[in-house]
């Protein structure tokens, strides 16, 4: 009898432990997905919506995207150890720290890196349609000859990394010429476009999504622009929907990316930048939740529907589970750190 009671007790204990483990592996019924952007019209909201929608259906939960911006998003995940709030952001989250922007900490030390989700291959640089510069080589040569090239960017992140790479390439090609490539610090895409319309910038940072229609305007239109550089890697662009975006096909877009448009990283290879979107968690989050999200997303991506939706919207699906994602993003961070430090010297 004592044995029976002991066995029953052990079984009950085991059941309790298993049950507790089971609860921990389940995601909260209501999941708040905060994003590092206040815009609902931008790529971060779009990427987060794809993932939140798919997670809602797959896990049977209610996932809601809140466009709160980077400062509030970091604060929100920092105070939530239960996993009811997760953050979706992109490379800005570590680039901001590399550029020393206040409010950006080292994400690899402060938060838990979650899986990567998708890539926006649309980060672009544009010139007016009447610009004398027809390629990145033209720009680097002009800088080498002493011409001042004004590049409109939003400082401290994704918009600036291409600019830093351009300065680095100028320094490698003709040391000292990097001083002729100067930033025009501004804010939104509208501000950057306006600087081009006003003739106050020679080159602007933009995106395929925001600026493609402007490239179709006739040359005598004050608003007409053309792409001069897409920072995405060749392999990434190869995965883009064949029809491209708007009336610009993938093939046409590849004319503006490496290897045809070259901005050297080190004299041998070209600089590339793919804008990766990924999840960030509170540092103390239950590992079971991370494992559950990894496993769920693996199944979601394997089903293929999310990949099709992403490709239709000019994204490239890019799922890496948390551990691989952390290693991948840390390497990316280290590579860009070298570029930023090279032009600071």
């Amino acid at each position: 009898m004592t044995r029976l009671i002991t066995k029953l007790g052990l079984a009950a204990g085991l059941a309790l432990v298993t049950a507790t483990g089971g609860v921990a592996q389940e995601l909260p019924k209501n999941l708040r997905v905060v994003i590092g952007s206040t815009s609902t019209g931008g790529d971060t909201y779009q990427a987060a919506s794809f993932v939140a929608d798919a997670m809602s259906k797959h896990f049977g939960i209610n996932a809601k995207v809140d466009a709160v911006g980077p400062t509030e998003a970091f604060k929100a995940i920092a105070r939530d150890t239960r996993g009811t709030t997760i953050m979706i952001h992109h490379d800005q989250s570590y680039l901001g720290h590399l550029y020393g922007v206040k409010g950006y900490e080292d994400i690899f030390a402060t938060y838990k890196i979650g899986p990567t989700l998708t890539v926006n291959p649309g980060n672009a640089y544009l010139v007016p349609k009447k610009s004398p510069y027809n390629s990145m080589s033209d720009i680097l040569e002009a800088a080498a000859k002493g011409t001042r090239i004004r590049v409109a960017i939003q400082p401290g992140g994704v918009s600036e990394i291409g600019f830093s790479a351009l300065k680095n390439a100028a320094k490698i090609k003709s040391p000292g010429s990097e001083a002729n490539i100067v930033p025009v610090n501004t804010g939104s895409q509208a501000d950057k476009d306006q600087l081009l319309f006003d003739g106050q910038a020679d080159v602007i940072n933009g995106s395929v999504q925001s600026n493609e229609q402007y490239t179709r305007l006739p040359e005598d239109d004050q608003k007409a622009m053309r792409f001069i550089w897409l920072t995405a890697a060749h392999e990434t662009l190869e995965q883009v929907n064949e029809k491209g975006l708007g009336e610009t096909s993938r093939e046409a877009l590849m004319e503006y990316a490496t290897p045809k448009a070259s901005v050297t990283l080190d004299g041998k290879t070209d600089f590339t930048f793919d804008k990766d979107f990924f999840i960030l968690y509170n540092k103390e989050i239950d590992p079971a939740i991370i494992a559950a999200v990894d496993a769920g997303l693996k199944e979601i991506y394997a089903e293929g529907a999310i990949g099709t939706s992403m490709k239709d919207a000019f994204f490239v699906p890019h799922f890496l589970p948390s551990t691989e994602a952390a290693a991948y993003l840390e390497k990316k961070r280290d590579d860009y750190k070298k570029v930023i430090e090279a032009i600071r010297q």
Binding site: S39, T40, G41, Q46, E212, Q213, L217, D221
Partner: peptide, 17 residues
């Protein structure tokens, strides 16, 4: 600025054309 999200979510480009 929020409204533009409706177009983005439906994959519609808004611009000069």
């Amino acid at each position: 600025a929020i409204l533009i999200g409706a177009f983005t979510l439906q994959g519609i480009q808004v611009g000069p054309l």
